[in-house]
Design a protein around this nucleic acid. Structure first.
Lengths: 251, 251
DNA sequence: AAACGGATTTGATCTGGATTAGGTTCCGCA
DNA sequence: TGCGGAACCTAATCCAGATCAAATCCGTTT
């Protein structure tokens, strides 16, 4: 099977495969088959829509670089951000098996996307069960994060909410090699952050300032440093269990 | 393969298989294999814990009768209900592939549960890929519901939130044959409902009374009747798309 | 039939975060 | 070098829903 490679010589889909293997076991053939998935690379700029609520997509979007986010719009025009995605993420795996999209996916920054035909994914899951299971695990972890967001937005006050999400981003970006020592570039505006935690941008701004004054974080434009991780974790009621980074059973 | 049957002669796991087949294609052998899953039936009374946050469960709970719910407790003692489950639901499929549970599962009413060994499920998913895909689809729909709950709790006001969840329950219970004409027995207390929509029970009570006064609903103890479905759907900003009941691609 | 306890209901008061209405800073571009 | 637009920041006021406190209802136990 031919494997498409990037100018650097590594298969373009390799980071995605590596990511799946952190939580599921794949053999050489599974890996090969994943790398041989057909796809079409497209460049998209910040704000570009990848999928819209109600679409019947023929492709799943795999993020190669940049950031994307999922969101829904309520009847009265409010927006709720549902998830943040980084390079290597299959942003919308559900499109491979559910006919109609129930939310929007939009680029947060400029980036590149590999569009994989949905049929290719569902066919591969049937042909190579270990791949199916790996993708299923990915969906399970996604689910777990949604649950935590329900809690965050449903039962935590503004300060706790914001600390929590900043902790989550720190861990996830670090895991992806995009942060170090709790220091990272927040890929979103305060308004988008507000829509992720169910607050107004005005209030988010206030809370961020207060967190700065308390020396919990420091900021320089979009750059965030969590100055006191332990205290931040406490204030944000953050427990990384829901990210399911621990090695899975038997591994 | 031996298939366990209930006193009525029907396989005990049959409702679960039927439920999976509404969204995924299974052949006779897949069906057989699912019905032949090993399990242990246990009776549990309202309030009984099936899984606790942090557990390393060896089984997945399949609800045979009654209602169950998932929830998390925050650092300051708040509770957020994450999901409601009815008979036929695999309440915690994630335990088959993720080592540590990230939330609690508790019975809402008395009921019966089939505990299926997690290894049996993961092994079956590898052995019969169509079963793996069917379970994956189940997880995808779960995810979609979580996303809608994030929106509900993050961006809707109390009145809209409560109408929305009452619409969701109506549809899901009707789909399961437990409601008819938008009339059903709400399986939870107002306090539990409050914890599902991120409000206090005091405020939930007030809103329910107002909805009654407006003739949107009527109540008699736990029995709910949605008197004006169209208006209720509008007020609750409810669009059933996220439940993914429509026939999947090609079906 | 009295006593008990969980669930529901109601009222009074308080407050966290929304809303409104600005301002400032920064940057790309003519 | 100046202009336009997006992001960021701040202050003043308002209100939806929280909190606190008590009744009341109803099924169950004694």
């Amino acid at each position: 099977m031919p494997v498409h490679t990037s100018p650097t010589g590594e298969a373009i889909l390799a980071p995605m495969v590596r990511k799946l293997e952190r939580r599921a076991r794949l053999d050489a053939q599974d890996r090969e088959a994943l790398l041989a998935l057909p796809y079409q690379v497209r460049r998209a700029s910040a704000g570009a829509h990848l999928i819209r609520d109600g679409d019947r997509p023929e492709h799943c979007a795999l993020l190669l670089s940049g950031f994307a986010f999922r969101h829904k719009i309520t009847g009265d025009g409010g927006r709720q951000v549902l998830a943040l995605h980084l390079a290597g993420d299959f942003v919308d795996l559900q499109n491979s098996l559910l006919a109609v999209s129930d939310h929007n996916v939009q680029m947060l920054t400029d980036g590149e996307i590999a569009f994989v035909p949905r049929d290719a994914i569902s066919a591969l899951a049937l042909e190579r069960p270990a791949v199916g299971v790996a993708l299923w695990v990915d969906t399970l972890v996604d689910s777990s994060i949604f649950r935590e967001w329900v809690v965050n937005v449903g039962r935590r006050d503004a300060r706790t909410r914001i600390c929590h999400i900043l902790c989550e981003f720190s861990m996830r970006l670090e895991e992806a090699g995009l942060a170090k020592n709790h220091r990272y570039e927040l890929p979103m505006t305060q308004e988008q952050l507000a829509d992720a935690v169910g607050l107004t941008s005005v209030h988010v701004n206030r809370v961020l300032r207060q967190l700065g004054e308390e020396a919990l974080i420091s900021r320089n434009k979009r750059a965030i440093v969590i100055e006191d991780w332990n205290r931040m974790r406490d204030v944000g009621d953050f427990n990384a269990r829901y990210l399911h980074y621990a090695t899975p059973r038997g591994a």
